[in-house]
Design a protein around this nucleic acid. Structure first.
Lengths: 209, 209
DNA sequence: TAGCACTTGAGAATAATTTAACAAGTTTTA
DNA sequence: TAAAACTTGTTAAATTATTCTCAAGTGCTA
């Protein structure tokens, strides 16, 4: 039975299913039951079936799930076959690393441009992505459709930059700065990567095991 | 009332409290109530009090919490005043970015060494961290106390590398590879940064708002 | 100092999430 | 082909997480 409101807990598990199914595809496995999938992923079969049932009926009694088909369904739910457009602000070490290594296209994103303040890199390009000056940012956004902005800038200016971008119509942020961004409009979506938070939870767990 | 088993949900909120309290300190704010803190962080006062009560009694009726004191308490719980030792395996773009920019010392970690296969960088150092060849890894671990290994290597070898490190006694992993690492021993802790998972949840949310 | 406005920590109530159970249907095997 | 072995999607139960409520205690003000 399709559900209207999907909980965050479910959404956060979807990419992991997608990853596992991609792996199963690569291994040439054609079908899988919720039970076997659960064993591989170390979660219960019940949860898997409950999760999938939020979006439709993808399996067949007595058979299980067709791996390739299920992968395509979940990919579709996540939007990997969309064509989202993305720009990056801040091409320091981290921005550079993402441009060079992250498989944006496999996740349905096209990186159209990057912006930075450093004259040394303005005018150059990284992995085919042109780097412009910050002065060119507003004009670029007005002339292009931009779905997501990656923030890989120093944290001091993060909220100001975000506010400005929101005023220009940006509604999606992939935030690598160490601050909690916010917006009065619930229409604006933030997804944070907080390195320090992550390492601190590990610190807690190794000290308290 | 101190609790024995702290849920993951609580632990994952601790770093955010710590961050917010650090910010309040910097702003010179001396005391704060759970209500005001909740307003700043956009969570309920109840949850804050419930979370803190897992670890002890840090506030005072009618007064609230002393910011600096509470920050120190949470920092202590998270282990920022521990001296954890860490090594990095894989000094590509991402590893390099972390070595250059991530404030390891502020989170209680000392980076003792990094390892890579590339002859071009072996023998050099990044931000004071010496880069050794992979051949020197086992010896280094035997001769030093290593609490956490940062995995910033290509994913194909991630699980093998992890298995080998576990056999050498490593019990903590900060994993940036795109695979789900596992160990039969629950004593081994993995903390994952899955960039693609993160971006895909954003993709879902901008497509379904 | 007395009264009022705050505030915590804890227990109870509510909400959300996860797990179990099972009817209904499919596949495999003998 | 018939029976046994599987497997799903769904509903119900159990568990976990969050929010509400309030007694008890503190600080401020007149």
């Amino acid at each position: 039975m399709k559900k209207e409101n999907i909980s965050d807990a479910v959404i956060r598990r979807l990419p992991r299913y997608y990853r596992q199914l991609t792996d199963l595809c690569a291994r040439g496995i054609v079908r899988i039951s919720s039970h076997s999938l659960g064993q591989e992923m170390n979660i219960t079969a019940s949860q898997i079936r409950q999760d999938f049932s939020c979006f439709g009926e993808f399996g067949q009694q007595g058979y299980g799930y067709n791996v390739e088909e299920l992968r395509a369904e979940i990919g579709h739910i996540l939007g990997v076959d969309n064509d989202h457009h993305l720009i990056m602000i801040g091409v320091g070490n981290l921005g550079h690393a993402l441009l060079q290594n992250f498989p944006f296209s496999q996740t349905g994103f096209t990186v159209d441009a990057a912006f930075d303040v450093s004259p040394a890199i303005i005018g150059t390009s990284v992995n085919g992505v042109p780097i412009y000056s910050m002065e060119e940012l507003d004009g670029f956004i007005r002339e292009h459709s931009v779905d997501v902005v990656v923030l890989t800038i120093p944290q001091s200016t993060a909220q100001d930059t975000a506010d400005h971008l929101i005023s220009l119509g940006i509604r999606g942020f992939w935030n690598f700065t160490n601050v909690e961004l916010s917006s009065p409009s619930s229409d604006v979506k933030f997804e944070n990567i907080h390195f320090a938070d992550s390492l601190l939870t590990l610190s807690y767990r190794i000290a308290n095991r």
